[in-house]
């Protein structure tokens, strides 16, 4: 037994902390890598399913309803329509933006399924279903969907 003893606690032990840390190295699959390279060039390029002809943005390696691989790349527009949205008003762990902000499902022109993104340059109360919005690009060359900083009302804020 140890001679010195610095432990003076007498209350029962009821819990302990268990720190875990796992480091991963992730490589973007080819379909995602293509999309992100296009994003760097300020282009939104989706993929079309060879069976149902639906266009997905971000592109999908496999059509989720037809289970076939999608190879054909399709240039989408930089504007779209708000399918639906919510206003995030609470802070939470892991959050990137300062609330309140509008999180919307946007159907980009030339695509068939909505993209989840942020709507900016407009008061949350002013956002409506069916509103037309356009991409505002970030100046930084981010190889992620954050290259589009947010979407704003088409033609800029009135």
């Amino acid at each position: 037994m140890s001679d010195s003893d610095h432990t003076h606690e007498t209350a029962p032990v009821t819990r302990f902390k268990a720190p875990t840390r796992l480091d991963y190295t992730v490589t973007a699959a080819a379909v995602t890598a293509d999309f992100l390279r296009h994003i760097l060039e300020q282009r939104l390029v989706g993929r079309r399913c060879p069976v149902c002809a639906k266009v997905y943005l971000p592109p999908r390696g496999v059509c989720p309803t037809c289970a076939v691989r999608c190879h054909e790349q399709v240039e989408a527009g930089h504007a779209g329509t708000i399918d639906t949205f919510s206003v995030v008003r609470i802070p939470f762990e892991g959050q990137v933006l300062e609330p309140p902000y509008v999180c919307a499902r946007i159907l980009i022109d030339g695509t068939d399924a909505p993209l989840l993104h942020i709507v900016g340059e407009i008061a949350p109360e002013e956002v409506t279903l069916g509103m037309r919005v356009e991409a505002v690009w970030d100046d930084r060359p981010l190889p992620t969907l954050a290259r589009v900083r947010y979407f704003r009302p088409e033609g800029g804020t009135p």
Partner: peptide, 21 residues
């Protein structure tokens, strides 16, 4: 692939609290 792969590090870390009973 003739272009370099996009690779990123990612860490999953959390200090779980274990209640003991």
């Amino acid at each position: 692939m003739d272009q370099p792969a996009l690779t990123s590090r990612f860490t999953l870390a959390y200090a779980y609290k274990r209640s003991l009973g």
